[in-house]
Design a protein around this nucleic acid. Structure first.
Lengths: 228, 228
DNA sequence: AAGGATGCTATACACACGTATAGTCGCCCG
DNA sequence: CGGGCGACTATACGTGTGTATAGCATCCTT
């Protein structure tokens, strides 16, 4: 059913990559060892180097593999016109679950940039057709980035979240509880609009105090603060 | 002013701890070396072991130090009755900024549990006196945990967030942009209540289908990651 | 002033890990 | 048939790192 892998898999190369995804995800890049990965894959450590050149090369291969995978799922979600139907999203979630820990680790180690950006793109589309009473105070891309980061937080902080939930996040119970919680949080503002207005005002005032007149420090690519 | 440190600081022990907080935050626990930390602290590597026993002991000392620090700030925020005034929060944010990268790393490595829990407690209080039209569908603790995780995501994904923002997250510009974005996101639901209701309903229905009666799923230590 | 504890350094050890090299087996193409 | 080539293994090397030990200096106590 979920044959989302490339045709030429089952090969030793693929087994090494899978083992690496597991080991990197479970122990982190540094603590994971080529020897351990090789053992899981059922090959000799030398073969790892033969196929991927180096440990870093292996990581990059893992990243590329996942980027392609996520991209494929994104396309499917995009193709789904009925946004009330979550079957594709659920399906994607399920299929990507084995790789969540790897993604979490890689992202928190600063790697897998294109993977993150790929998700940001999707989030951007998602946020774009979201109706809201007042105009946003920051560009769409910024909101999408932060929303993506926030969504990634849960798998990244796996141990802590599981402890707070009282059940393992990846168990069926945990997954259900988590989904319900996310739905609740995402559908309710954590700050009342009035309070937000006050705080935003205070923020802008202190900001103006800090940056009195013509500032030019740190020229970002596009400094558009206002909106898309 | 920012004399938030213990009295007996300036000592070599304190310098080592500070250096460790920096190195661990900058390079992660694994990549950070005792020799490097010692050099930054201006002492010999042996002294690190003398004071903290082991690298792990050093990490724990860092955690304890930060838990105490955060705890102190939490108390001050709690003591602040006027919730519209953000001076204490801003002050705490500023004071904790040098340690943010350490905290982010430690948390994403699964460590510093009590630090996380400390923040969850504060979030819990924050969420408790938040008015909302409908009753929550999950316990307060669960919501607080996830909200905390989401808040932590931004510093953890520092590189990616900075890239998405177009400016360095820790620069003044980045900080302002980030604050505005967070305010915007926190004050607007990302899912409309109606949509959420539909999704929640769908979720509960599939959940009942999946777990007919008492499930307790065997959480295998190593999940097969090949296919499903 | 003697003695010991404590802060601190220098040196050495043990080991795990990434990497490099040489070699073997099997398959495909000519 | 055979020659080359890619998949794969065995083994070894170098090094970075945590840790252990021994020794020195300084200060406090009695």
């Amino acid at each position: 059913m979920t044959t989302e892998r490339d045709p030429e898999d089952l090969t030793a190369r693929a087994r090494i990559r899978d083992a690496a995804l597991f080991h990197f995800g479970e122990h982190g890049f540094e603590r994971a060892t080529i020897r351990g990965i090789a053992e899981t894959a059922g090959v000799s450590p030398g073969l790892v180097r033969h196929h991927f050149g180096s440990k870093q090369g292996l990581r990059e291969a893992c990243d590329e593999y996942l980027v392609a995978l996520v991209h494929r799922f994104n396309d499917r979600v995009r193709a789904d016109t009925s946004h009330t139907d979550m079957s594709y999203i659920q399906q994607s979630r399920a299929a990507l679950r084995p790789y969540q820990r790897y993604m979490a680790r890689a992202l928190s180690e600063g790697a897998a940039a294109s993977l993150f950006d790929e998700v940001v793109n999707l989030t951007e589309e998602w946020l774009a057709d979201l109706k809201r009473p007042d105009p946003p105070v920051v560009p769409l891309r910024v909101r999408a980035t932060i929303a993506t980061a926030m969504a990634m937080a849960v798998p990244i902080l796996y141990e802590h979240v599981s402890r707070g939930l009282g059940v393992d996040m990846f168990s069926p119970e945990g997954d259900l509880l988590l989904s319900r919680a996310l739905l609740d949080i995402y559908s309710h503002p954590l700050i009342s609009p009035e309070e937000a207005a006050v705080l935003l005002d205070a923020l802008d005032r202190t900001a103006h105090r800090a940056t009195p007149a013509g500032r030019e420090a740190a020229p970002g690519p596009d400094e558009e603060l206002h909106d898309e």
